Amino acid sequence: MDLKLAEIPRVETITKEDFITYYFRPQKPVVIQRGIEDWPAFRKWNLDYMKEVVGDREVPLYDDRPVHHKDGFNQPHAKMKMSEYIELLQTKPTKYRIFLWNILKEVPELQNDFSYPDFGIKLMKGLPMLFFGGKDSHTFMHYDIDLGNIFHFHFQGEKECILFPQSETKYLYKVPHSLITHERIDFSNPDYENWPVLKQANGYKTVLRHGEVLYMPEGYWHYMKYNTPGFSMSLRAIARNPKNLAKALYNVLVMRHFDVLMRKFKGQKWIDQKNERAIYRTNKLKNIST
């Protein structure tokens, strides 16, 4: 049995009026297939171009290893030159990914290749972020700490995307005091014997290809899997819903620091307790003892 996932609607292009009316206000995802064909990046951005432009930069790499209590917030698992990393992507599968790599800070010259589209909401111009991954590498299911509105622009290859709104959180085995679901869940091939309540969750799916833009509404859970080596860029706008803004402030000012403190105080026991709690809380919805 597969997850209950509706296909994300697709449009070739969209006016800002239609975007606001049909997707932003009702907080529904959409894929815009031809939204950036006027960007130089649409023609230029591929792995070879990135190797040429930023090949000498050292980049932070992440994989899908379980969270460990000694891991710092967004602490990379490895580092290497971008040229070496892209050669790795192009020659064999790898779990290593780059995420939240700020273009303005790291590679300001790349900003000449794109512009900030007018979707009818104000985009944060200081936070254009790049994400890279090798074939079959993936993120944990998570939502962003600021619960922002995200526009995800994909370049080269194919990327599988699975989304859930915050309303489905109770079915997703969310780990307490964190932004992720239980790490052992494979959302591309879920095991319902171990995760039975997932069957109740209703979400969305799509596959992104070069030049396509995915809009993810405020606080949407997202799981990304690279079907082929490739990369994406995200632009974002702040959450508008007061509840989401309050939750974002709590995440940044309280939750993150509390979790770091508990890792230092209780060590790996804290991580294990959170994972156990995620299973216990969620399985109560089906009266399943764990």
Results as ranks from 00 to 15, higher is better:
M224W: 08
P76G: 09
L104I: 12
Y85R: 02
L235I: 13
G211F: 00
D144V: 10
M124N: 15
I32C: 06
P217G: 00
G230Q: 10
V213R: 10
V107S: 01
K266R: 14
E17G: 08
Q166T: 11
A41M: 03
H210Y: 03
Y280L: 15
M233D: 08
A78C: 03
F132T: 10
P190Q: 07
I288K: 07
F140V: 12
G211I: 03
K174D: 00
P108A: 09
P128L: 02
K135H: 01
D64Q: 12
E58S: 11
D272F: 12
L61C: 08
Y116L: 15
K92F: 07
F155A: 07
N102V: 01
S83V: 09
V207T: 11
A246I: 09
K51Q: 03
L253K: 10
R65D: 11
L208S: 12
H77S: 06
H68P: 02
E7W: 04
E218G: 03
L104S: 11
D18S: 12
V213D: 06
V31D: 00
L285T: 09
Y171I: 04
S167C: 02
Y116T: 14
K274G: 01
I145E: 08
Y250E: 08
K225R: 14
D38P: 04
F155S: 00
K81T: 10
P128S: 00
I185L: 11
W45A: 05
V59R: 02
V252D: 13
R184Y: 11
I121A: 13
N251D: 05
P76W: 08
D2G: 05
P108R: 01
